[in-house]
Structure formats: C-alpha cells, structure tokens
Design a binder for these strands. Structure first.
Length: 270
DNA sequence: CTACGAACCTGCCTGC
DNA sequence: TGCAGGCAGGTTCGTA
C-alpha cells in the first residue's frame, strides 16, 4: 500500500494527535507481523512521553524519550487515530493508548508490516543499510550514476531498491520514469548523467506532488482520519494499461519487471 | 558481487 | 452463485 508519500501523509496525520503525550498502554493483539513484535514493549515504554514522530524511508520512528519504535506499514498497513470507545476490528493488531485516551491503531490485513524497537535508530540493521532520502540534497544525478556503475538491472528495479534510494515504490517508479522520459527496462549502467538528472528531478517532483495531495489511494490507503489520498487522479501511467498516454495518446503498455507490474508510454519513454 | 525467485499473508477482482 | 486463479502499494533471504 504505502510508498513514501503515503507514509509521510500518515506521519503528518498522526503526529499532532499524539506528540507530547505519555503512553498509558500498548496493546499487541497480533504479534506475528513481518517480524515478531517484541513482547516487553508495554513494560518498556509505559509512562514515557512521545517526543516526536519522524520518518526514514518508509519507516516511521516513534521517539519515546530516546527509546524508539520503528513502524513499517508493509503492503497493506495503515495507522489511524481513534478512541478506546471504538472497538478494534479485524486486523487491528496494535493499539497505543495515550494519557488523554487518544488511541493510535495499527491495522494490517496482510501482516507484512512491522513494529520493532531500538535505542539507536541509525544503527538498527534495517535502517543502517538504507540509501539517501529522495527529497534530500545528497540524492543527486552523480550519486545515482556512481551507484549504477556496471549494473545491468533495469532502471526501474534500481530506483526501487531501498539500498540505492528509499521511498520509491512500484507506483512512483513508473510515474517518475514517465516524467523523465526513460524506458523502465533500460540498463541502469547505460543511463547518462543528463538522464539521471531528469530522473532525480522527476522523482522529487512526483513524490512532492503526491505528498501535497495526501498520497495515492488505489484500493485501501487511508490517512489518520480514515480518508483516502487524491494523487491517483494525477497518475500518468500506473494502472493505465491500454489507456491513451496523456501526452501523445499512444496506448500505455504494461510489463512485468522484477515480478512487479510496470507501465510506460512506448513513444514518450526511450 | 549481481540477479532472480520464493517467501511472508489476506482480500478482492475476474472469468469459467 | 460458487470457486479457482491471479493479482496487490514491500522487503528480506536463499540460491544460482
């Protein structure tokens, strides 16, 4: 479900409701997620104040006075703000209850998400290996070209690799390549610096615009209030197989690249 | 090192 | 209407 814009939308949505409050209870109804949810979390974090909610790639970091929870939404996870009066539904796996009875609730039908703890986020094995943030200054054309040396993977697979750059998932990879006019099957090592500059610009533009619109809702993404995003109306190629390219009217083509559905315009992208 | 497929799990849509 | 099959926004891991 969530790529960087959806995770960022969730972060912005939940933060104002919970930051500055102390944790009263942490209820884990289903500990079997992508990795087991540690079983001592409530004891460890109860009474601590949530200092802030930040994001690294698609991970949310809840900072409880320098004891951190990492939350990943996987493919189908979502977070919402609710109250103890609302009974948990199916797949509501974790509740954070704060001192004013605000509840942060984690729902994840497919259980590909994760809730983990760490005191040193930067050194956590899952975070330490991540590439730069796409909206930061150290994500650049020269960086991408350097990391793609001798690599023949399709460019779409490269930009979806979180070790190269975080946050670009299956939707925004297709969208960004369309924006840059680059064919998704091109070998990463063959892309020129000029093209990489267009790609960096395109990734940043696509992600920023999606964040502005509250993310993309294809079937089930909802924000902290349970409402959908609006970026799907802006999608240029994703999910538009056989529909006319918005630039040249050629039917959008569909391919599997690395087992992931990929969409592109055969005329606008080379 | 690179590249590819399998695995984790549930729900929804399509087609017979 | 029922059911099998395919597909889904992510990521790690094992094997060539």
């Amino acid at each position: 479900m969530p790529e960087l814009p959806e995770v960022e939308t969730s972060r912005r949505g939940i933060s104002p409701h919970i930051v500055g409050k102390s944790l009263t209870r942490l209820l884990v109804r289903q500990a079997k997620l992508r990795w087991p949810v540690p079983d001592n979390l409530e004891q460890r974090l109860s009474g601590k104040i949530l200092l802030d909610v930040s994001r690294r790639g698609k991970y949310l970091l809840l900072n409880f006075d320098d004891d951190y929870l990492l939350v990943h939404l996987g493919m189908s996870g979502s977070l919402r703000i609710t109250s103890p009066a609302e009974l948990p539904g199916k797949h509501d796996h974790v509740d954070w209850v704060f001192n004013d009875d605000t509840v942060l609730r984690f729902n994840d039908p497919r259980k590909f998400g994760a809730v983990l703890s760490t005191t040193k986020p930067a050194e956590h094995p899952l975070l330490a290996v991540l590439g730069p943030e796409p909206l930061s200054a150290n994500f650049s054309a020269t960086y991408l070209q350097q990391r793609s040396q001798n690599r023949r993977v399709p460019i779409k697979s490269l930009i979806m690799d979180s070790h190269i750059v975080v946050g670009v998932g299956n939707i925004y990879a297709s969208e960004s390549l369309f924006g840059a006019g680059i064919h998704p099957l091109r070998s990463a090592g063959d892309i020129t610096l000029t093209e990489y500059q267009r790609l960096v610009d395109s990734i940043q533009s696509v992600l920023s615009k999606s964040i502005q619109q509250g993310g993309t809702t294809l079937r089930d993404f909802t924000n902290a209030e349970g409402k959908p995003g609006y970026f799907q109306q802006t999608l240029q190629v994703y999910g538009r197989r056989n529909q006319p390219c918005r630039l040249c009217a050629t039917p959008i083509e569909h391919l599997k690249i690395g087992q992931r559905a990929s969409y592109f315009c055969p005329v606008c992208q080379h």
